[in-house]
Each structure stands twice: as structure tokens, then as C-alpha cells.
């Protein structure tokens, strides 16, 4: 199963970092291929993304379910379930205070293509995930730092 973890240090205290990460609307457009998302309730939403599989790009609809939202531990866990493609997965966002002015952000994502040709899709998906996670985390970091002035 293709898995990726990306860590970065945001030059901002925990409060504004968590304040930003915990409002999905703020960072959703930073996800590569993001087209739209619709909230079904406070735990579930449907995301439309344009994703690359090798040299092919497909519009994928995914149901995202928040399974753990921990304001104390500054940790969000979610599950993914493909609507128009056979794929499942999940991920975590963790913010950890490093100092008064620095916060570590960890973004973990795993996706498993299902169906008969899943093993092949996973091979193609693997190399695509890392740049996606990196780009998203770096954009979040840049935006928070920009807001901090």
C-alpha cells in the first residue's frame, strides 16, 4: 500500500498552526488536484480531486471520515473511501510544539487502490504521493508563516 509521511517545521507557535490546520477550508485548496469538497456533517465530507496515476489523470471522488479529532493532542485522523474509484486509505495530521516560535507538522497519508488491477495502480500511485504530501505541507507552512507576518 503506498504510504507517505512528510514532516516540516513551521515558524509559528502551536496556536495559529492548529487554528489553521483544524479549519479544512483553509488548506483544502493546497491539496494538489483539489477541485471541491462538500461537508455532509461535522465528521464526513466528499472530496473531488484530480489525481495522477502514471501519465494518466483522473477525477476521483472520495469520502473522507474524521475518525479522531483530538484538540488536546493536536491530532486529526481520517479515513478515505473511494466513491467512483476502488480505493481506500487514511491519514493523520499531527502538530507538535517545538518551541514558542516553532511547530512541527506531520502529515501522513496512505492510499490503497482496490479492484482487480489495484496492485498495478498502487505501483503507479506510489511515486505520486510524496510530492503531493510535500507540496501540501509546504504550502500550509508558507501560508501560516505569511499570516504570522
Amino acid at each position: 500500500m503506498p504510504v507517505v509521511e512528510y514532516k516540516c517545521i513551521v515558524k509559528a507557535p502551536m496556536e495559529p498552526v492548529w487554528g489553521f490546520v483544524s479549519v479544512i477550508e483553509k488548506w483544502a485548496p493546497f491539496l494538489k488536484g483539489y477541485e471541491e469538497h462538500e461537508e455532509l456533517n461535522d465528521k464526513e465530507s466528499v472530496w473531488t480531486l484530480k489525481g495522477d496515476v502514471g501519465v494518466l489523470s483522473r477525477t476521483v471522488k472520495m469520502k473522507v471520515t474524521i475518525t479522531n479529532w483530538d484538540d488536546e493532542a493536536k491530532r486529526v485522523e481520517f479515513e478515505l473511501d473511494g466513491i467512483n474509484e476502488k480505493a481506500t486509505g487514511g491519514g493523520t495530521f499531527i502538530a507538535t510544539s517545538e518551541s514558542d516560535s516553532e511547530t512541527e507538522l506531520i502529515f501522513k497519508l496512505e492510499i490503497n487502490a482496490g479492484g482487480m488491477i489495484g496492485p498495478v495502480v498502487n505501483v503507479l500511485l506510489g511515486p505520486m504521493l510524496k510530492p503531493v504530501a510535500k507540496e501540501m505541507a509546504e504550502k500550509i507552512k508558507a501560508r501560516i508563516e505569511e499570516l504570522q507576518g
Partner: peptide, 30 residues
Amino acid sequence: MPMTFSESRQWKPTCTPEKVPWEKMGERLA
């Protein structure tokens, strides 16, 4: 999908896709 004509004739991905060793295809691609 990295398979030869003869492998594709043997596995027939268009008729019996369940016979194709997809893991092996994934490995070859990787």
C-alpha cells in the same frame, strides 16, 4: 501493462482478467 503478446494470449486480460497475475505486472512496472 508489461506483458508480451504470448502472455496476453495465455492470460486473456480481456476475457479472464482474473487470470492475469496483476501483482507480477505491478512488480514488472516497478
